[in-house]
Each structure stands twice: as structure tokens, then as C-alpha cells.
């Protein structure tokens, strides 16, 4: 690249340098940066798709590689193995790993202020609160059993009183009444069930004492030190993506029919429902991706109830402050 300056260019460069003082990375060449998402492409990750498509990450100097997740993908593993700089995951697994295995993780942001997972049942056989689960059959993905046991314990219910069976990603057994309820994203499954001509009802584990975040942003301590500027840049661009998303939650999903959502097997209408349903769960006085002191306190309290003894220093809010 030629670096000879003429007058006009010089003024432009000077302006860029001035801007760079407030936004450190903008004027630099783009840095490769990889994020590991928690699941396959759906509206859960809309903010990041916008950030990539609209160049928010590029403007921050990040050349972002996006890795989608799946049942065998443990997001934390990807960052330990050095295949990603940052992962979206759940605070219960992260904190348990820090406490029990001394894993070098820090939580630097949170997408969902309220965890969207909840108990979904049919309106014709409604489960409206944890007590209603006693004596019923509940399908839970094996990885989430820890959360359900926590919620039951918080509500004074012995997990032995609920018949917990594996949930194999398909709502058919619920629709046909083989199970009474299932644990899933309340932003998603009620729509699928309504498509089968049946009405669903649901409640969040969050509303019954299991007050944890979801899709928390986790990094290793090493990345936190070595790539701090990039992490702040990623948080800033992601917040911008989510802000843009919720200005037009119905408008974005159809745009991705041939890109991000191509061939996922899910419908665009489903993503629109999802995108609208997730907005109230993501809003925070601290802004999108934010973590408030009350929120962190609520996470630690809920996890302590089930024997996961986290501490405040496992969360690092200083990067959010730098946005």
C-alpha cells in the first residue's frame, strides 16, 4: 500500500487519527477474531449477523469469523482449544468449571438478561408453575438437567417427584401428549407447537428463582489480557447490532433467507416470532450485552442455591464500561 500523502488525504487521515483516539481500533488494519456461538443459526444470534453484514465489526477493525454451535459443541472447549477468542454459553456451566476445575474463564458480557429457557406445556394440559410439575413427565435436554434441578430445589420440590426424561429436540411427543412438558427456549417452541394447530403455554425458570443470564460472553483470562481492545470492539459492535435488530425485529430475518438462515431447516416466520419474543429478555438498563450489579448478584445467588459457589470476580464488567 502506498503511503504518500496529498493534502486532502492528509486531512482525512488526521480526522481518522482523531477519531481513533476515542475508538482505538478503527484506523487499524483488521484483526482476525473468532466467536463461537451456542447453537445453529437462528434469531438467537441476529445481532451478530447484523454486525457482520452491516460492517459494524469491520468498522471496529475486526475480521470476524462466526462459528455456529450444535449438540456436541461445548462452546467453552472451543476457546480453551484456541479455536475461538470468545464463546457464548451459560453462566452455570462456566462458573461450575471455574470453581471445580480451576478453568481460567471470565464472563465479560451477557446477551440474555433473563434466561429464555422455560417449561413449555400445552394449554389443554397446562403447567403454570413449578408445583404443577409434581407427578408429571418433563423432557429436558441432558445438558440442562442441572438448571431444572436448580429451579425445582429453589421452589422446594424434590427432583425425584418429577419424571425427567431426555428431550431429543423434537416437540412431537409433547404435542401428542406422551410427555406433559418440555424444557426449551420459550422464544421458539411455542411457535412451532402453534404451527401444529395446538396452543402452548410456558413459564421461564427465571421467573421462579433461577435468575441467571444466558448466552453469557466468556473468554479465557489469557485472551482477556492479550486481546482486550478487540474484545471491547466486539462488545461495542455487537451492542450496535442488537440495537439495529430491535428497531426492526420483523424486517431482518427475511433478509437472511438466502444467507444466514439458508438451509437451516427452520422457517423465516419462526425466526420473526423468535426475534420479537426475545426482545424483553435482552433489554437491560446497562444496554444490550450489559451486566448490572443486581443482575450479577442474582446469578450468584441462584447458583449458590444449587451448590455452585461463584464469586463477583468471575464477572468482569470493565470492558462494558469501556464501550
Amino acid at each position: 500500500m502506498s503511503l504518500r500523502l496529498n493534502r486532502r488525504h492528509f486531512l482525512g487521515t488526521a480526522a481518522a487519527t482523531a477519531a481513533a483516539a476515542s475508538i482505538p481500533l478503527r484506523a487499524r488494519a483488521s484483526t482476525p477474531f473468532t466467536m463461537q456461538a451456542a447453537w445453529i443459526n437462528d434469531a438467537e444470534f441476529a445481532g451478530y449477523f447484523i454486525g457482520i453484514d452491516e460492517g459494524y465489526y469491520a468498522a471496529e477493525g475486526l475480521d470476524l469469523t462466526y462459528l455456529s454451535g450444535g449438540p456436541d459443541v461445548i462452546p467453552e472447549s472451543t476457546i480453551i482449544a484456541g479455536r475461538a477468542d470468545l464463546a457464548l454459553t451459560t453462566p452455570d456451566t462456566t462458573i461450575k468449571a471455574i470453581v471445580e476445575q480451576g478453568a481460567p474463564f471470565k464472563i465479560i458480557g451477557a446477551q440474555y438478561q433473563k434466561n429464555p429457557i422455560g417449561i413449555v406445556s400445552l394449554a389443554s394440559n397446562p403447567i403454570n408453575e413449578p408445583r404443577d410439575l409434581i407427578g408429571k413427565t418433563l423432557a429436558v435436554p441432558p445438558v440442562n438437567v442441572i438448571s431444572v434441578n436448580a429451579m425445582l430445589a429453589l421452589n422446594g420440590i424434590d427432583p425425584g417427584q418429577v419424571n425427567i426424561v431426555p428431550y431429543a429436540y423434537d416437540p412431537t411427543p409433547l404435542i401428542r401428549g406422551e410427555i406433559d412438558a418440555s424444557l426449551d427456549f420459550t422464544t421458539n417452541v411455542p411457535y412451532t407447537i402453534s404451527q401444529q394447530g395446538v396452543e402452548a403455554t410456558s413459564f421461564l425458570l427465571y421467573d421462579f428463582g433461577f435468575t441467571i443470564y444466558n448466552d453469557t460472553v466468556v473468554v479465557t483470562e489469557e485472551t482477556l489480557t492479550s486481546k482486550r481492545a478487540e474484545l471491547v470492539a466486539w462488545l461495542r459492535a455487537s451492542r450496535k447490532g442488537w440495537e439495529a435488530n430491535f428497531k426492526d425485529p420483523n424486517g431482518w430475518p427475511p433478509k437472511w433467507a438466502d444467507t444466514w438462515f439458508a438451509g437451516t431447516g427452520r422457517s423465516i416466520e419462526n425466526e420473526i416470532f423468535f426475534n420479537n419474543a426475545q426482545q424483553p429478555l435482552m433489554e437491560s438498563p446497562a444496554g444490550y450485552m450489559g451486566m448490572t450489579e443486581e443482575g450479577i448478584e442474582a446469578n450468584l445467588r441462584a447458583l449458590a442455591e444449587v451448590g455452585i459457589k461463584g464469586t463477583r470476580d468471575m464477572f468482569d464488567t470493565t470492558l462494558l464500561e469501556e464501550i
Binding site: I40, P71, T172, N188, T192, Q195, G265, R266, S267
Partner: peptide, 24 residues
Amino acid sequence: FGGGGRWGLGAYLLGSLGRGEPDR
């Protein structure tokens, strides 16, 4: 199915499971 890629019949199956549509 498990590995988190975007393409492949296994990935398509995973995305389709949530729909509760046996014909797919």
C-alpha cells in the same frame, strides 16, 4: 448432527427436528 457446521444432512436434520414435522 453434533458438530455445529451449517451444511450436511445431519445439520439439516438437527434444524428440522424442532419443527415437529415427521414428513420432513
